[in-house]
């Protein structure tokens, strides 16, 4: 299993409503196809009422094995559903068809 998949599976523990794991290793000084640098974006109500440090520590706790091993850098962007909405990063629902082209 790739490290990326492993990270994605372990983070399911946070019951994320949005989870995005990007391998950014190619942006760093490592061999091609490395899995060393990741960016993770999570929206979860588990972060409600928690300071940023505590949120990050939750994720670090889940990924301690990966961080002690192959993963060298982990960029984290962690939001509650409210914060995510306030940021306007909700992908807007696609509009319904209004009948154009039927005429």
């Amino acid at each position: 299993m790739s490290i990326q998949t492993q990270i994605e599976e372990k983070l399911q523990a946070l019951k994320p409503t949005v989870l995005k794991v990007d391998n950014e290793s190619h942006m760093h000084h490592v061999p091609p196809n490395s899995e060393t640098h990741f960016k993770v974006m999570i929206v979860s109500d588990r972060f409600e009422g928690l300071m940023p440090v505590k949120r990050h520590q939750q994720v670090y706790g889940l990924l301690s094995e990966e961080l002690a091993g192959p993963v060298h850098a982990l960029a984290l962007h962690l939001y509650t559903p409210h914060e995510w909405e306030a940021r306007g990063n909700m992908s807007p629902a696609s509009p319904n068809c209004r009948g154009g082209g039927q005429a």
Binding site: P52, V53, H56, A75, L76, H77
Partner: peptide
């Protein structure tokens, strides 16, 4: 007290 790492610092 630990405030955070790069992501938290930049976001704050």
């Amino acid at each position: 007290e630990l405030v955070g790492g790069c992501d938290i610092i930049v976001e704050m």
